[in-house]
Structure formats: C-alpha cells, structure tokens
C-alpha cells in the first residue's frame, strides 16, 4: 500500500540486511539487547507500527516482541525516528522534546544511538 508506507520501513529493511553483515554482527556483540520500536505515522499513540530490533540474535521483525519483555521500548513519529536514526537529532534531545518516548531500562535505552542504524546512500 503505497500511501501507508512509512519512511522508517525502509530503514528497518536495510537494518535487516545490515545485521547479516560483519559490521552488523559486531553490533550484536557490542550491544546484545532487544529493542522494540513503535512508529506512529503522524501522531504518537495512533496507528503505531511495531518493529523489534533484536540485537541479541541479530534480527529485525515487524510486530510486537513475543518472548517476554524487550529491554527498552521506544515510540517515535515516523519523521522523528528517521531524524534520530540518521543523526539529524540527538537521542537525548529527542527525549527532552518528547519526540521519543522510552519504556524500560534506562541503561539499555542509553545504548540506543544513531550508529546502530545503517545510513542510506543517495542515488
């Protein structure tokens, strides 16, 4: 469905491939946590789509985490997530502004930095 496509979908798809590479495996070794990320197209709390970025197993799956509790759950608007993942917005600032909601362990949340996401190269 072209019109409900989120920008973040692209990034998570890239993340999927990325985690299979050496750099991605390095990441799972370094972080070893499970994050669930909820993306709202326009407004937080509405029509949220969930992704699980499992940096223990090195997987990205769509849908809520099934297997207990993720180490941290983040909620973003689509645009804000892209901004954080591409380094346009500092996670701390996103948090201060309320652009990023966090649930769960704070020490786990602090490891959530823009460098875990691959950057899209431009055509």
């Amino acid at each position: 469905m072209a019109n409900t496509e989120l920008k973040s979908d692209n990034l998570f798809e890239m993340m999927k491939i990325h985690l299979a590479t050496d750099a991605g495996k390095e990441l799972t070794k370094k972080i070893g946590l499970v994050y669930q990320i909820n993306i709202a197209p326009k407004k937080i709390g509405f029509d949220e789509v969930s992704y699980v970025v499992d940096l223990k197993k090195g997987e990205v799956t769509k849908g809520k985490y099934e297997g207990g509790k993720p180490d941290a759950i983040f909620t973003f608007k689509d645009d804000d997530f892209i901004k954080v993942a591409t380094g346009k917005m500092h996670p701390q600032i996103a948090f201060m502004r309320g652009a990023m909601k966090i649930k769960g362990s704070l020490s786990a949340a602090q490891k959530f930095t823009p460098d875990i996401f691959p950057k899209p190269a431009k055509l």
Partner: peptide, 24 residues
C-alpha cells in the same frame, strides 16, 4: 543515576535526566 530504576512512560528520569528536563 545508574538507571536501575525502571521507568515508565517518561515519568521518571535519572538525576541527569531531571536536570536536563529542568534545564530544558
């Protein structure tokens, strides 16, 4: 400050967070 307290829905921050929020 070690972040051991489980936080829920942005309501609690560690000391640093609170400083930041106030500051913000």
């Amino acid at each position: 400050s070690r972040g051991e307290l489980i936080i829920d829905d942005n309501q609690v921050k560690p000391a640093s967070g609170s400083w930041a929020t106030e500051y913000q």
